[in-house]
Amino acid sequence: MNLGFRHDVQTLKWMGPLAFGLLAVISLGLLPHAVRAQDMSFDINETESSAPKGKAKGKAAPAKEAKETKEEPAEAEGGGEASAEAGGGDVLSELSAGKGKKENETDEGGLPREKEVAEKIYAVQRMYVLRSGRFELAPSMAFTVNDQYVSHNALAAGLNYWVSNVLAVGVNFLWYQGIESESALNFAVRRSARLAVPVTQYQLGGNLNFTYVPIYGKFEMFNDSIFQWDTYLVGGVGVLRTRPVAVIDPAVRTFDFDWRVAFNVGVGIRVFLTKWLTVFGELRDYIYMEKLESLTVSLAQRGEPTTWIDANSTVTNNVMMHVGFTMFFPFTFEYRYPK
């Protein structure tokens, strides 16, 4: 719940301390009901905005908060003197301004009589982090999850620029050579079934990517700590440098690395530890056309390199799990409110 809802509660210049006290009680009384209406609102703002106790008493807003929120009026609800001024600069006050004049009537004795305020409350929750216009650096470790025969593990780094709060464009780079490992299954199958499985080795990869954030959420832990997180979709195109590993005729065949065009799609989850530091896990499928070692050995042309590669290309899906952290630059950002 955002305490901005207090701006919707009309106060009148001529109301005395009694009315002011009544409003304060009403405001406090509304607080838990508003929270209930949101089912489970534990947004950061409900704790932040509830902090200045003085606001309920109609005092001026703390300077720090006034500075942070900028366009927000210093105090639209306090003390009964701010409603007219507030109407010019605050959305919430403007929303309530039209009805405010009708909320007070006089009784038979000419004394003011308060009627029930039935304003519609707009509770706008502030995003925990603004990403638009910021850079995101994302180092990670990547593990192959779908290859039984060889693990193409890699050290990776990504750099994104967020063009909006939900869309980013970026690049990532992966280094595989020296980190890959061949599984024991290959050897076991060769020994038990006399069957060789052609495998490949990766050296490096680089991609241009787009990232979109369709899902976001928050978790609380034991009703104490709150974690903000989001799920994102990522996709792009790039290059991959691979070569076959000679298993059919290793005595003769050797292969050099060559470039492949690779597409990638993936989904990830990012948990915010601070407003500039996150941890993330990402499942990404790197799809490309692989050239594998030829399964046949031509005795007449055994030393001819053109016979070592299979004539057909094979669609290869290298599904990798990235685990790492990201840092947003600049570290801080400013909220902007509509006028």
């Binding site: 406090l28 200045p52 106790k53 974690f227 601070t274």
Partner: peptide, 15 residues
């Protein structure tokens, strides 16, 4: 997460 809770909600549960 950068929340410095003061005032009436200080010490209150997160939810």
């Amino acid at each position: 997460q950068d929340v410095n809770v003061q005032g009436p909600l200080a010490g209150a549960p997160a939810v």
